[in-house]
């Protein structure tokens, strides 16, 4: 009875799904398949060798500091970095006094309350403060940016597929729209063509304007390519500041587990050794049993 009901129910699902499939196949066969514009023009991020790639990867402190400089001089006027605190800069090689100075002299002040009047006001940053946002709120940010919202950059490299390479590709990917780009997809007023951006047209004007936009204190040549790599590395750090702890702890844990697993395998074999040996002497290896089984196999028409 159960089987009969099951059979009917199963037939029901098969028929309905088959109906959907049939409709789908007919539609697929009769309607021309249009490739979407994004599908045709969108590019995957370029391959970039970052020092933190791979299981033993580490951040390059010098590069992070250069990236921080780029953030400060190029990005920070529009983009917030709200999940990162000034104190975190000590992790990329600044000392306490430098961090204090950076927080104190940051171009945007921290929202505060006037201690005398109680009115909204601002004060100088301290190391414990997070990076203040350039805009009061989303409305202000949109108003100042042609209704586009500059995203917070703290997690941008984890919030995009292949993040660090994506940021690098996006920053270096601005170009003139290809001639065969359909008119609907051409960048409108205030938009810029960038094949690495999901819908091809991005509101952010090209932020890197050419070589020598920033001046690095460590003597690295600030080519546009280098600047893009440095800021990408910096943003990889802001998104995953514990990457080095993770890689280091992972190595210790994996090595220990390898050792422990080999040991446990040996112990397992060891424990079972006695069990197997005993069994050989008991009934089932009995030639009579073997013969019985072979006979049964032959009967079933099985070739051993």
């Amino acid at each position: 009875m159960v089987r009969l009901i099951a059979f009917l129910v199963g037939l029901g699902f098969v028929v309905v799904a088959g109906w959907s499939l049939g409709n789908g196949v007919v539609a697929y066969a009769t309607q021309p398949q249009e490739e979407s514009v994004e599908h045709r023009f969108h590019l995957s991020p370029k391959h970039v060798d970052f020092s933190f790639n791979g299981p033993f990867g580490k951040y390059d402190r010098q590069q992070l500091q250069r990236g921080f400089q780029v953030f400060k001089e190029v990005c920070a006027s529009c983009h917030s970095l709200s999940l990162v605190a000034f104190r975190n800069l000590e992790e990329i090689g600044y000392n306490e006094a430098e961090v204090k100075a950076i927080s104190n002299q940051w171009q945007i002040e921290v929202p505060s309350v006037d201690p005398k009047t109680g009115e909204a006001s601002t004060r100088k940053g301290t190391p414990a403060d997070h990076f203040p946002s350039p805009y009061l709120n989303e409305v202000a940010a949109r108003a100042a940016n042609n209704n586009a919202l500059p995203p917070d950059l703290s997690l941008i490299t984890k919030a995009r597929h292949d993040g660090p390479a994506y940021v690098y590709s996006l920053l270096t990917g601005y170009r003139n729209p290809p001639a065969d780009l359909p008119a609907d997809s051409r960048p409108g007023e205030g938009l810029h063509y960038n094949p690495y951006f999901a819908n091809l047209n991005i509101a952010m004007p090209p932020p890197l304007t050419g070589d020598g936009q920033v001046t690095y204190a460590d003597g690295t040549k600030p080519t546009q390519d280098q600047v893009a790599k440095d800021i990408s590395a910096f943003l990889a750090w802001t998104a995953e500041p514990r990457l080095e702890n993770r890689h280091r702890a992972g190595l210790a844990v994996v090595l220990f587990l390898l050792f422990a697993t080999v040991l446990s395998y040996l112990a397992y074999q060891n424990v079972w050794h006695t069990a197997k040996r005993k069994v050989r002497h008991t009934g089932p290896l009995d030639p009579e049993n073997m013969a019985k089984r072979d006979a049964a196999n032959r009967e079933a028409g099985v070739n051993l």
Partner: peptide, 27 residues
């Protein structure tokens, strides 16, 4: 598993078991 060798000491086999359990404890 727990039996001792004829000479009364801990057998090498038992040592592996003890080591494995100890490793689990350390972990």
């Amino acid at each position: 598993m727990l039996a001792t060798a004829p000479d009364g000491g801990v057998r090498r086999r038992d040592f592996i078991n003890i080591a494995a359990v100890s490793a689990a404890g350390v972990g």
